[in-house]
Amino acid sequence: MAARTTYHHGDLKAALVAAAVAAARDGGEAAVGLNRLAAGLGVSASAAYRHFPEGLEDLLVAVGDVARRRLAERLASRISEVAPSRDAATDARRRFRASGRAYVEYVLEEPGLFQVANRHDRGRLPETDPFGVLEDCIADLVRAGVLEEVRRPDAATAAWAAVHGLAVLLTEGPLRRLPPERRERAVERTLDMVEAGL
């Protein structure tokens, strides 16, 4: 009976999502179990499933939404920190690069959440959409005259693919063993190539 004292009242769905986010941060997708989390909150599995009718997948999608929202917030925060200069083109380039660095930074800090965000997504939501932040950066480059409008289609997709690929290599692939200074060089070189390609 003591186990049931963990959770008394309130929003069970939000409590389950928060517990799942914490579990994913520690161990990625494999650490998220609906029955286990329900038990940890002192509620029955059936009570948990009432909030997530499709079971674990519903919960993982909710965790993915949280992860994507946090990633979008990280990108927006780093972009806002770019000090303005007197040159619009320079500023647009700096904001674009800041978004790329922030992406890799987030992935390195939150590999478990990143994993869930990538594998469990039922569609783009404006409030949880880091891709929308990148598209704004691309639009910024066009307005500043850095990128021609004719080259704008799919520019965000290409930039996303490059930075995302690097992030995966640094967390799950052979580049995960790079020392910090080489990792930083890899990030900057990738951004150099993406910027030049745009």
Rank of each mutant, 00 (worst) to 15 (best):
V107C: 11
L108R: 09
A14F: 07
A62H: 08
D140E: 15
D121Q: 08
L178H: 07
G100L: 01
V32N: 07
A62I: 05
G165T: 07
P126N: 10
V61N: 02
V142W: 00
L134Y: 10
H120P: 09
A156M: 02
V116M: 05
A14K: 12
P53A: 03
D154V: 00
V17M: 06
A24Y: 08
G112A: 10
L37S: 09
P180S: 07
E181N: 03
D192P: 12
A72V: 04
A102D: 10
D26S: 15
G173D: 11
H120K: 02
T157W: 00
A167P: 14
G145I: 05
A92F: 01
H51M: 04
A83M: 05
R50E: 12
G123P: 12
S85N: 03
R68N: 06
R119A: 14
L12W: 06
G10Y: 01
L59D: 05
A2M: 08
A19S: 14
L41W: 04
A72K: 10
P179A: 13
H8N: 10
R124C: 06
E73M: 07
P153Q: 06
D154L: 10
R69M: 03
D11K: 03
A31H: 08
D192R: 04
R70T: 03
L141A: 03
V194L: 03
E135I: 00
D121Y: 11
A155P: 12
E148I: 00
E188L: 09
P179R: 10
A155W: 00
L125S: 10
R94F: 01
L59P: 15
E29K: 13
L169T: 06
E149R: 13
L12M: 08
A161H: 07
A144W: 03
E181Y: 02
R74D: 02
L178E: 07
V82R: 06
A102I: 10
L198I: 00
R36G: 13
L108D: 05
G123V: 11
A83E: 14
E73H: 09
V150F: 04
A24K: 12
A88M: 02
A14E: 15
P130A: 01
E149V: 11
N118E: 09
S46L: 10
T171K: 00
